[in-house]
Design a protein around this nucleic acid. Structure first.
Lengths: 253, 253
DNA sequence: AGCAGTGTTGCAATTCTTGCAACACTCATT
DNA sequence: AATGAGTGTTGCAAGAATTGCAACACTGCT
């Protein structure tokens, strides 16, 4: 582990909170101003940090571009996308695709609802991991000890009365989800929004991603939404088949 | 400028192209494997890099989270958002907000069209800088020499027959945009999509962001879209007023 | 004008990084 | 089964790169 790089990278989350000037950065890093300056300069050269007109630093444009590019190169995403679109054309609701990665679950694709009432979410945004249907699927597939470890570490915010209250309840829910092979979120994140989700599996049977259909109560009831489950599962299975059948592209680029 | 950090950061764009293993990274960096390993480890600790099951590295989830967080903390975005939503409610079309930063223009907010036909774009994605209406406005405001320098450096892809063909034409267009104070893109990016854009200015009169309304031909003709120009400009001006009137919040946290 | 606050540079000490070479490990092949 | 190629990993010593200092610019205030 490199100390210099470690310090430089520590600047990024710091600036994500909001712009900061040289002194503030140096203080929070616990280094001399001149050191902070040189680190910031290096970050700047790579476009990860931008210096605004008031001389303060904030995160730079290249960061967004990098994130976008990385996302678009994800194999699952590429394969899944047309399926998601087709599903959206069939049912009209918002369709999400999400992956798990080191204690975070995040949306990597989204097709917006055709209905005027939309739910708030954004590609790249970490999802409410304790309640989202896709998160339950992704976590349920972890090896038992790891699942436990993650569940203990999490916070359990009470978004609504039906939010998962604590680790024990979450682990029970994960066990159920694991057995039935699909998951729901019925108003656990936002009072009036329900989701049904199904897993996408790789060749080895492990879950590599999860997809969901979400709709607000005012458009369809939870029961009506549940009737879409077979369709969602079929779509997920189709993606799984295509994903695992494919020989991994080992580009030498 | 720090060599170590420089090398570490060079890994990111490399991985943005696609996953790579240790050897590939070391080669492309021109350093020993052990060095590359230690850099990758540091990046990994910060979540910027993820090690997938086949041991290859790719960009990590934290990168997306950082980009998201940074975006949501942008002052202009925060102020503009409700205005964009209102504009969308009035006209029904897709509304974009974009900023310029070191040779790139990128969308920082978007409100989707109410019509079923949507245009492809994504928050955080760099825009087609040579044709987009918002890009014209943002570049037109640069000091003359810088504008020239940027225009020379750019590529001019022929998205459609009406795309800006070269630097000379682009500079002429920028001059026109600069004088009239608004911009359009009539099928320059995608054959059937038109946009009108207006600038958002800070207290000093400089353009800090630009917003646009976009719609495909099949919904409204270019002429009809142009009738929205006054509304777009009024919205942009309202945002400008609110943005420049506000005293900068100097939070210590 | 003078002053406080902030950002910037040259330099010497020493810390931190680097490359090497040897070692583990996995996987495919004979 | 065993060998070998390919890849990832670690300890160590040499040397290079980073660090903090202190002095210097610069800007905006009082």
């Amino acid at each position: 582990m490199s100390q210099t790089v470690d310090r430089a990278l520590s600047i990024l989350p710091l600036l994500a909170e909001g712009p900061a000037d040289l002194g503030q950065v140096a203080d929070r890093l616990g280094v001399h101003k001149s050191t902070a300056l040189r680190l910031l300069r290096t970050l700047h050269e790579h476009g990860l940090v931008y210096r605004q007109s008031d001389q303060r630093y904030r995160l730079g444009a290249r960061l967004f571009a990098l994130a976008q590019e990385a996302m678009e190169n994800l194999d699952v995403r590429e394969i899944a996308h047309p399926h998601l679109v087709r599903l959206n054309e069939n049912c009209g609701h918002t369709v999400h695709l999400a992956v798990y990665e080191e204690n975070e679950v995040l949306y990597i694709d989204k097709v917006e609802s055709r209905y005027p009432v939309r739910m708030y979410s954004r590609i790249g945004k970490p999802v409410a991991i304790t309640v989202a249907a896709v998160a339950k699927l992704l976590l349920a597939d972890l090896p038992e000890h790891e699942r436990r470890a993650v569940a203990e570490k999490l916070d359990y915010p009470s978004y609504t009365a039906r939010s998962t209250p604590n680790a024990a309840a979450f682990l029970r829910e994960l066990e159920k989800v694991r057995e039935q092979g699909w998951a729901t979120d019925l108003g656990g994140h936002e009072e009036s929004i329900n989701c049904v989700a199904a897993p996408i599996r790789g060749a080895d049977g492990r879950i590599v991603a999860a997809m969901s259909v979400s709709a607000p109560n005012v458009v369809v009831t939870a029961d009506e939404l549940l009737t879409l489950l077979p369709l969602v599962r079929r779509t997920a299975d189709a993606i799984s088949g295509e994903y695992s059948g494919r020989t991994p592209v080992k580009g030498t680029v």
